[in-house]
Design a protein around this nucleic acid. Structure first.
Lengths: 149, 149
DNA sequence: GTAATATATTTAACATGTTAATGGAAAGAG
DNA sequence: CTCTTTCCATTAACATGTTAAATATATTAC
């Protein structure tokens, strides 16, 4: 059974986005499960690794997480000693989150496999189609919603 | 701030799918919140309304939900008297879930607004681009994953 | 017909999504 | 300077996502 889905739901954009995301994330989740981090924890670690120490609000924006979720994720990551937190030097409302050496090691150990999965996607789906898809998704993201939020 | 996202994350397919989904679902969620049902509960009700009584496994497949989630959702919907459940006539492992009149009324009362939001999307994004996007997403969904699952 | 296997659904446990409310700290208005 | 407002982060409460285990029933193999 290659495609068990009814034709009508194939034309529902929310469902199509859901299925596509599951297709892409499945293998990545499997890889991360072996290391003991979730997809969201991985996103946070990568942001911190790429951009250096950040405050939670900026982490949330860059990793597409809501702050309440991020709060819990940072607590988990701190418990695993993959990140550390310090008070902001001037603004005492903020804090500064930094990836630890253990965190950087975890990223380094799995980046190659992650890139291999990306390469698989680009190869099997086609480079032109992948770029076209990304362009369309980014265009869609820039629409103004009817309720203006 | 129209587009606060760093350029590199715009080329990450999982993130792009996440953002696009949020863009499309935001207004729908707002509409459903007024009625007191979640996005997932709405999907279940629509499937039952369109296809008639079904067993949980088929509902899960058609509404893109995992069975443990669906179990809880059906309990909630049954508590709200929007669906009813009965034993399967021949196979006692299965059950048959049916949408109630209240459930059908809820669908009818909100279908027009839902269609209005779909029309907004098609108008503002463009009919050709929307179809192209759906085609690409469906193609992506038919790839075989490298881990074969 | 019984044992082994497979299927349908539920439960459990933990993580995240989502909205609202809270508490503490900075910024602005007067 | 004080009052109000805004901002940052957390907590709370409830719903769902995800994987594994449990339960009950059906099917298959022998």
């Amino acid at each position: 059974m290659t495609n068990p889905h009814a034709p009508e739901t194939n034309r529902s954009l929310p469902i199509a986005l859901l299925r596509a995301r599951e297709k892409v994330m499945g293998p990545i989740r499997a890889m991360l499960a072996d290391v003991g981090v979730t997809e969201q924890q991985w996103r946070v670690l990568r942001v911190l690794d790429e951009r250096g120490p950040l405050d939670p609000t900026e982490i949330a924006d860059r990793s597409c997480l809501l702050l309440p979720s991020l709060t819990r994720i940072l607590q988990t990551l701190e418990g695993k000693a993959l990140v550390s937190r310090a008070a902001h030097p001037t603004d005492r409302r903020k804090q500064v989150v930094t990836i630890t050496e253990d965190g950087q090691t975890l990223i380094a150990d799995n980046l190659k496999e992650s890139q291999r999965l990306n390469a698989w996607l680009r190869d099997s789906f086609g480079s032109e189609k992948l770029d076209a898809l990304l362009d369309l998704l980014n265009e869609l993201d820039q629409l103004d919603r009817p309720d203006g939020r």
